[in-house]
Design a protein around this nucleic acid. Sequence first.
DNA 1: GTCAACGTTTTTGTATACAAGAAATGCCCG
DNA 2: CGGGCATTTCTTGTATACAAAAACGTTGAC
Lengths: 216, 216
Amino acid sequence: MARHADTIAEQLEELILSDAFSDGDRLDEVQLAKRFGVSRTPVREAIQRLALSGLVDLRPRRGAFVHQPDAVELMEMFEVMAELEATCARLAAQRITDDALAKLQAANQACEDAVAAGDADGYYRANEGFHHILYAQSGNRFLETETLRLKNRLKPYRRMQLRLRGRMAQSLSEHSAIVDALIAADGPRAADAVRDHVAVQGEKFHRLMATLQAAE
Amino acid sequence: MARHADTIAEQLEELILSDAFSDGDRLDEVQLAKRFGVSRTPVREAIQRLALSGLVDLRPRRGAFVHQPDAVELMEMFEVMAELEATCARLAAQRITDDALAKLQAANQACEDAVAAGDADGYYRANEGFHHILYAQSGNRFLETETLRLKNRLKPYRRMQLRLRGRMAQSLSEHSAIVDALIAADGPRAADAVRDHVAVQGEKFHRLMATLQAAE
DNA sequence: GTCAACGTTTTTGTATACAAGAAATGCCCG
DNA sequence: CGGGCATTTCTTGTATACAAAAACGTTGAC
């Protein structure tokens, strides 16, 4: 619908996710309009969109206030993320095609190669590919879309997770467990494997909390 | 943020969900503005919001087109709904309080009473109460909110489901199975019980398909 | 008769103007 | 000196005006 409003929504989202605003900050329409060199109208449209995805709270006749999730909310979102991915896996175990299974194994191999090469960025991309194949093979486009939406929302908090020493190697063996369960067409086992893989627990949990503290 | 835009978004949502528009219809801004007795501005804001919830597709420089889910999409959404509720149950099995468990049993009893009295509306309310307790007892507010959101989105398609002969009696025994699993703190069993309870399968599936055909 | 190109007409997207409600300021009174 | 109330200022919400892009119809050529 919008040409400017589109790009402004994106830029504004970037700004909020990159912590340029802190929790509770009011988004001043005229200020943002000036900043982007447009009028208030497209800025308001952009804010409307961000409100629906939960990045800002809209208080009638008061304005828009950025909403940065606290530790509890984050854990809740990660928990739902793990469940959504586990569901993808459970369904994929029944529905995955041989072709996609081959692609999944290839993606897993790419992960291993990246780890062997010490290529963190490469691992990130290959890992993303692995997971996206899983979402698609749930055979449920709605589920796929929703999962991607939440994944995207969690992206900025995600990158801090995987830099743990030895985490990548463990991640690889978890991938293999997932693939095995899919080969066996064992839905519940696949779901459990994915849930364990994605869940934020143990050392990951402490690391996340520490990073959140530091951000304040 | 909006006073008019709020109410317009609600009314427009009502209109779309109540099938006043069919799939692919263009939402004419000036026409809607006249209809609601306002200018284009609040109408546009309302449309923006509906776009995010998937009720309308926004095509840049073209306009807003209502998007009515087809049979496949509906099944996908119901499948995700079943999974979200199952997740609520799985988590609730670990986290539910004794107090809430008592309330759940009371809600179930209210369902039974309504069935005994042949009170369809009463059953609807009691059943809704039962499920909402479950969402809340997942102990995950984010999950609770998302589940409610999807439930609301599916509401218009839901009412056609439960009027099947003998369906209410079966529903009651399913409720009992859920409660039993929660009492036993058996997460996986609670999840399965809820999934079976919510899933659209068998006769429910055929009925849904038939109703969709009739709507076209 | 068909198709393409041009001009007209809608319609969307943005800017600006205006109205109304909320916050801020200062003033008066206790 | 402090608290409550009125006024002023600022901000949101809505209406209108304008610009640009897309749909539409017409005309003309092949």
